[in-house]
């Protein structure tokens, strides 16, 4: 039983690391269709990618991506009664998303080849 719990914990940690590794790409990709503000990005990540990001941590990450020139931001006075800070991809950001997507696809394709026998065995 302990072994099963250890195995489950290891899988959880591995999955967390995997998701962390893809977080920058996920945030950038969430903005591919147009500008969003922080809370919208969080909701998009959750609904489209099942990525639950701790709310406070998303803003330093957005700050970094903006500092790297991948995002631009602007304050917009919203009808909701408070201003919202919207983020959008810059040209460099769009190029980065394309490049990262290419790397991701290549990695996934390569891994799929290795995993095919595992899936076949697992499906029996």
């Amino acid at each position: 039983m302990n072994e099963a719990a250890d195995s489950s914990g290891s899988i959880d940690r591995w999955e967390t690391q995997l998701r962390k590794g893809g977080l920058s790409l996920a945030v950038l990709a969430s903005l591919w269709g147009g500008r969003l503000y922080g809370l919208e990005i969080l909701r998009r990540l959750e609904s489209d990618a099942e990525l639950l990001v701790s709310e406070g941590a998303i803003y330093p990450l957005l700050n970094r991506l903006r500092g790297e020139g991948l995002l631009e931001s602007e304050w917009v006075e919203a009808d909701a009664g408070h201003p919202r800070k919207y983020y959008a991809l810059t040209l460099a950001g769009r190029a980065r998303v394309k490049a990262m997507t290419g790397v991701w696809d290549g990695f996934a394709r390569g891994l799929d080849g290795l995993l095919a026998p595992v899936r076949k065995e697992g499906g029996r």
Partner: peptide, 18 residues
């Protein structure tokens, strides 16, 4: 100021607005 404004906006909206 910018960080404080953004976090305020987030908390305000997350809590249900006005």
């Amino acid at each position: 100021d910018d960080i404080a404004r953004e976090l305020s906006s987030h908390a305000f909206e997350r809590a249900g607005g006005a």
